[in-house]
Each structure stands twice: as structure tokens, then as C-alpha cells.
Computed example of a mutant assay.
Amino acid sequence: MKEEILGVNVNTENYDELIPKVFANIDEGKKSLVVAINPEKLMKAKEDAELKALLNRAEFQIPDGIGVILASKLKKGQIRSRVTGIDMMDRIVQEAAKRGKRIFLYGAKPGVADAAAKRLQELHPDIQIAGVQHGYEKDTQVVLDTINKAQPDILFVAMGSPKQEQWIEQHRNQLHPILYQGVGGSFDVLAGNIKRAPVAFQKVGAEWLYRLLLEPSRIKRQMNLPKFLVEVYRKK
């Protein structure tokens, strides 16, 4: 089930409801893209019709960001829980390990995907990692051939948004995997290069506040949240 926020469809389900749908698509061979939706992305999409269309073409748009939950409440909608990109990735990996599905990690600086894969193998010993490829390979055909040769079911792409979603949409019909997710900086978090907000901040949806405390220069970006909520209220 989906709900529209500033012209972009967003899934209303939580992790437990989404995972069976995601894996049903894998079993049916239905290629699917998981894209994380947050206020910053929605504000960009408001000004960028191409980005809005790209987000709406995705099969799953997860509500990543407390601002999306607040917007849904303002609209008297159904979205009640955040589904973050990194936690969705972890839940997909967890389920893939149970079902014998193979994953591939593409993106980030040389060595980062390898370290992330190693960490995932520690967290989920049964996971089948088909391969990794850093994001600095200039020859796209080499990347496509490397992924296809490994024959994964699931591809995680870490390039930053919307570049990663654009890359997936451009190439997924030439690629073997069925499920695709753009995961931003998640490889760096798994590799230990970037520290995630403490659990207390995660639970109340205040990871943005933790990042702001660490990097006060982000204040301009964080001003998008009140602007976003005002915009949602105006469109209500």
C-alpha cells in the first residue's frame, strides 16, 4: 500500500510487511528497486520532475526519515514507522541468508565493499556473497560483466542518491540480479569508516540531530525539514 507525499508515492508498510513482498518479487523474477525516501529527496523532487518520475517508478519507496512520518501524520495518513535504508539492507541480507539468495556489493572506494562484505558475513554467517566491486572502475562494461558473471539475486549499489538509482534504472535490464537497492553510505558504516548514530537517537528518529551535533555545517541542509513540513501542510 502506498501514500502520496508531495507527489511521490511512499510505502506505508513496516519491515515485517515489506520483506515478504520484496522476496515474493525475487521468487517471481520481477525486477524491483528499493529507494529510500526522505524530506531532502522529496524537496528536490518537487523542483525536479525527472527525479520525481524516477522515484515513482521504483517498486518500493521506503519511508526513511522522521520527517516522512510527521508528514504522513499531518495528512492523517498511514505511515507509522521509519524504514531506514541501512536497516532495510540488513533485513534483506538476513532474509537472503535464510533463503539461500546471493548478494553483490557495488560501489564506494576501493576496499570498502570488501570490508562491508566481511562484516555482513560476520553478522549473517549463512549469507552467500557472490562478489564485490568498488565504485571507481571507469569501464561500465567491466562492472556489468563482473556482476553478471557472479550471478547474484540481489545487488546493493553505494553511490549516493540519486546517482545510484539512476545507475540502477539505466542498467538493470542488462543485469542478472532481480532486486536492487541504492544504499548510499551504508558500506562505509558497515566497514567502520562512518559511525552511525547511537541506538537512542535511532529509536526516536533523531539520527539527523546526531549528525548535526557532529557536523554543525549541516544546518543549512537540515533546514529542509521545517520547509518540507510547511510545504506538506500547505498541500494538505
Rank of each mutant, 00 (worst) to 15 (best):
Glu40Gly: 08
Lys118Arg: 13
Val68Phe: 08
Glu28Pro: 00
Ile178Lys: 07
Asp16Val: 10
Ala115Ser: 13
Glu95Val: 01
Ile194Phe: 07
Glu169Met: 08
His124Met: 00
Leu179Glu: 08
Pro125Val: 04
Ile26Ser: 04
Glu47Ile: 04
Ala150Ser: 14
Asn224Leu: 15
Lys138Ile: 03
Ala200Phe: 15
Ile219Gly: 06
Ser81Gln: 14
Gly67Ser: 11
Glu122Arg: 12
Val22Trp: 00
Arg82Ser: 00
Leu42Ile: 11
Pro216Thr: 06
Trp208Cys: 08
Gly185Ser: 13
Lys163Phe: 14
Asn173Gln: 15
Lys75Trp: 04
Tyr15Leu: 06
Ala36Cys: 13
Asp126Glu: 13
Lys101Met: 09
Gln164Arg: 06
Val93Met: 05
Arg91Phe: 02
Asn56Glu: 08
Lys76His: 14
Asp145Pro: 02
Val68Gln: 10
Leu74Glu: 03
Asp27Lys: 13
Ile103Cys: 05
Gln121Gly: 04
Ala36Arg: 00
Ile168Ser: 05
Val68Ser: 09
Ser81Gly: 09
Ala53Val: 06
Leu55Met: 15
Tyr136Pro: 00
Ala130Asn: 09
Glu17Thr: 08
Pro216His: 12
Asp139Cys: 00
Leu105Tyr: 05
Ala116Trp: 12
Ile219Trp: 15
Lys46Ala: 01
Leu155Arg: 06
Ala53Gln: 11
Gly7Val: 07
Leu55Gln: 01
Met88Pro: 07
Arg57Leu: 07
Ile194Cys: 02
Glu122Lys: 15
Pro226Ala: 02
Gly107Val: 08
Pro226Ile: 05
Leu229Gly: 13
Arg102Ser: 09
Arg57Gly: 13
Val230Thr: 11
Lys236Trp: 11
Val34Thr: 09
Gly192Ala: 12
Ser161Gly: 07
Ala36Glu: 08
Phe104Gly: 02
Lys31Ile: 15
Lys109Leu: 14
Pro216Phe: 11
Pro177Phe: 10
Gln164Asn: 09
Arg218Leu: 13
Thr140Asp: 01
Asp114Trp: 04
Asp27Arg: 12
Glu165Ile: 05
Gln202Val: 14
Lys2Cys: 06
Asn25Met: 10
Leu212Asn: 07
Gly65His: 06
Lys75Tyr: 04
Tyr136His: 10
Glu59Asn: 11
Ser186Lys: 03
Ser186Phe: 04
Ile69Leu: 15
Ile194Leu: 14
Val68Asn: 07
Arg57Glu: 15
Glu207Thr: 02
Asn11Glu: 13
Asp27Ile: 01
Glu137Ala: 09
Ala97Thr: 10
Thr84Pro: 10
Glu95Thr: 14
His176Trp: 14
Phe156Cys: 02
Arg80His: 09
Ala53Glu: 11
Met223Tyr: 13
Pro162Asn: 10
Leu70Ser: 06
